[in-house]
Nucleic acid binder design. Structure first.
Lengths: 241, 241
DNA sequence: CGATCGATTGATTTTTGTCAAAGACGGTGG
DNA sequence: CCACCGTCTTTGACAAAAATCAATCGATCG
């Protein structure tokens, strides 16, 4: 139940039953976090890691004026700060975006999991997947214009949600404000609003009432130069579909 | 010799002699790569990882028009694609910037290294350090203007070079063209040229003949909102110095 | 010497940010 | 039930930042 979505849909790295139950038994607590709550602060030593069961969370770095740059968005199934087991304390903050149900896994109990070679490799993989997403985000910010960034982000999020059964490729729930989106894409919220209008007017997608409708996901993917290889999903034949 | 700089200067994660020699013995070959040579291509299965002994390399993602976005710069001591041991094939390309001397470590020989709990953790750490740098780069691209990005990048590079004894904090060699810098900072090379002139005119730093002079590293760090915590360096008291 | 690559600069256009205000919407308390 | 409030969205007018286009300059290399 708790680990259902962990590594779900990833190329040949899915958990077997033993591994799954080993992780489940390492969970010390399941907790509900309200929306918009800071869960982890940069620089504070951590003694446990967090797996998202339900809801969305984000990592971010704050600038001098307190403005956030989101550096990661996390969905159910993401072992969001597994890396704090090795990289402690963290270099960034983590907060909930929506209300979230999370599983707490103490670091002491991660040690024996990591000691199992196959499982250790899968856990390592999951942290490297975050790094791969960071790189895609770098590409997005560095090479795409504002519209392309939004298109790329929506394609990525759709692909990730599909992997955990939360999008059908046509529409999905995304409970972010336009300011959140702006903090992801490195633009102002005013400009984000204009981009969303343009995408809507061009018939590529709509984003209303926390629902994204991917009207022409093919055009969106092209606009955002999106290629999902970096997500290491199963069924790569269905790419960008 | 080969591994001298690997994890050098990092908080409490340095290699002991046994670990060092274990890695050295895993090296199958030392090779020299000419400047400006693609070493690893995205999507191609890999059977070994590469540790830089001398020279600089970069990772990048190419856009539709063939323009690169650099997503990482790598220095001597960086185990640049250790992550390909777990994440294979890679999602990005790797190329040399300068001539480089590299050590090749076959994946089969990494397996027993990873199996040693302490060493495995350190190897994992080194891949997470890359992820932490990715996040800092995301902050740079998402929240800083062009001048701030350059300032931030120079501060980061100075700090990393100091960790491996290749900068004294006043000046260091950096054999990149202005176009390389532009590809790192997500701006055009024309604009990069203007930024460098401005930083020179403002007396913050100069960049000529492949040498960076950090004239006022304090002001540079402020301009780029640079805080080196994410590099997990020893002697954090000397931060931003 | 011509060719090439990188650095530099000016003029202009495009993109994005900033500032300001109004509109929409849901939730709350009277 | 309705008025009020806060948050989020939307829009316009304008300013700032960066890209683009075009050209020149300088050094290096065969």
């Amino acid at each position: 139940m708790i680990t259902d979505k962990f590594l779900q849909g990833r190329q040949g790295i899915k958990l077997n039953d033993d591994e799954r139950s080993a992780i489940e038994q390492a969970v010390s607590e399941v907790r509900v976090v309200p929306a918009r709550t800071v869960l982890i602060e940069a620089g504070k030593p951590l003694r446990h890691s967090v797996l998202i069961i339900e809801g969305m969370m984000c990592r971010y770095i704050v600038d001098r004026d307190g403005v956030r740059q989101l550096v990661g968005l996390h969905l159910p199934g993401d072992f969001i700060d597994l890396h704090s087991y090795v990289l402690n304390p963290l270099d960034h903050d983590i907060a909930s975006l929506t209300e979230a149900r999370i599983a707490i896994v103490p670091h002491d109990r991660i040690r024996p999991l990591v000691a199992q070679p196959e499982l250790g490799r899968k856990l390592w993989f999951s942290t490297l997947l975050d790094a791969a997403m960071h790189r895609a985000w770098l590409f997005r910010l560095g090479r795409l214009d504002a519209t392309g960034r939004v298109a790329h982000f929506l394609c990525e999020t759709d692909a990730r949600l599909r992997a955990v059964g939360m999008s059908d490729g046509r529409r999905f729930a995304l409970d972010l404000t336009q300011t959140d989106l702006a903090e992801i894409c490195g633009v102002t919220s005013v400009h984000m609003n204009r981009i969303l209008r343009q995408l809507r007017e061009d018939g590529l997608c709509t984003y209303r009432q926390s629902v994204v409708e991917m009207i022409r996901s093919d055009l969106l993917a092209r606009r955002g130069q999106f290629d999902d290889a970096y997500l290491y999903l199963d069924d790569s034949a269905a790419r960008n579909g």
